[in-house]
Design a protein around this nucleic acid. Structure first.
Lengths: 225, 225
DNA sequence: TCAAAAGTGTTAGATTTACACCCATGA
DNA sequence: TCATGGGTGTAAATCTAACACTTTTGA
């Protein structure tokens, strides 16, 4: 191969995906046992190598699609992790991404096939290499986003109750909020629409279901929680 | 070379540095004419390849030190830029970093030696490859930071006037603020200390010089502009 | 003497926070 | 009938934003 850059050394480049979900009032991530050496058997994020014919973003999308069967997930780059010895085998630099999925959309057969587990974010075990650092950075980014962009809806079913929305917000932001004040703020956002549907799974009385109107949000994209 | 990952392809990895400065009331960045093919002669950020024995962060620090002679600069990773064809020559993935320097600390001989120019951020020409995208992302990150972290002091001399501080804030945030309201907020921050020194370069009357007390900030790191 | 930047307080309006009770239902 | 989560309004406190004039001094 001819090269302008021949004298410099190349590195392996991988992507690692932090997949967030929300279920039973808790923020969760999807992790599995590493299937390859080095580190076989350790808890780990799921990742893959970047191929020569795909962009780094495409590699992350491919890995996410393999894993979830879902396209067009909300996905953001966390950043590059490039310590020399981060991979015990070779020099591998990894670009971390986080993605948000609705746990209910996710095919549990696929989860079992890959041997993945949903674990509560606050109870994540020690992970392979620098993966714990990756998830912390991802969480920090997400915490900043959730107050300024409507990302909650990526983690919830398309119909959700205000209590669910509030619990999610609390789980991500890490602080409790007053129910009445929270609902007041939601009422001001016209793109969060009340339906006539009632969810009775969470309480005897039942709670109204709401939906996120993407179109309405695009017309007036002001968001502040 | 033995490898666990032999079947996957490696890539060249570079770092690109966005060096911000502030002078004469304007936010500036340091760019130069590209010295190598492909793209020789085009306006470009300054960068370098990541070596096999250094972390990606170290590579960025090395490039910054070569260029400025300064250590311990404020530096943050912007992210990985990994489109397949972003480099016309070969597959090169680049990790962008931005750094803040005080223009007065910067040795102008070094600038000339490397053929670099300070250009107003709002007047940056078309740059090589995806470098314009990099600087936009860097600026966005910086805009978010400046209200929540005391980074202004990295761009200013150690003694500065409140007018300078305000102009800097306006240049980075992109919006004008009321002088009295701005000063009120500054007064609340005990780690921005008034000295008895007067700067007479900016006005006939002269303005008091202030200084950032790092130690006091560490004791009470609350910041909100 | 005048142009140019430095410096200084008050008030109205908006936003945020704290707070407690009734409702509907299934078990 | 009672335990559980759903739903609602008001008032005090805080924060934000708007606003204009005096001071100093070198040219």
């Amino acid at each position: 191969m001819t090269s302008f850059y021949g004298e410099h050394s190349k590195v392996w480049l991988s992507v690692d995906c932090i997949i967030f979900g929300f279920d039973e009032g808790k923020l969760k991530i999807l992790i599995g046992r590493r299937q390859m050496d080095p580190g076989r058997g350790e808890w780990s994020l799921y990742g893959g190598f970047v191929r020569s014919d795909e962009s780094v973003d495409d590699a992350a999308n491919r890995v996410l699609f393999d894993l979830t069967g879902l396209r067009n997930l909300y996905m953001r780059q966390v950043g590059a992790f490039g310590n020399v010895d981060r991979d015990p085998g070779e020099r591998v630099v990894s670009i971390a991404y986080y993605a948000l999925i609705n746990v209910k959309d996710y095919d549990d057969c696929l989860r079992q096939e890959y041997g993945l587990e949903w674990v509560n974010f606050d109870e994540v075990p020690t992970l392979y290499s620098d993966h714990n650092e990756m998830i912390q950075r991802a969480r920090k980014m997400m915490r900043q986003k959730i107050s300024n962009e409507p990302i909650s809806f990526r983690l919830l079913p398309s119909l959700f109750t205000l209590t669910q929305l509030q619990k999610l917000y609390e789980a991500v932001s890490g602080e409790e909020v007053d129910k009445r004040n929270f609902r007041k703020r939601i009422k001001d956002m016209d793109f969060i629409e009340k339906t006539e549907l009632i969810d009775k799974t969470g309480s005897k009385r039942g709670a109204f279901l709401y939906r996120f109107n993407k179109r309405a949000y695009k017309e007036d994209p002001t968001f502040k929680l």
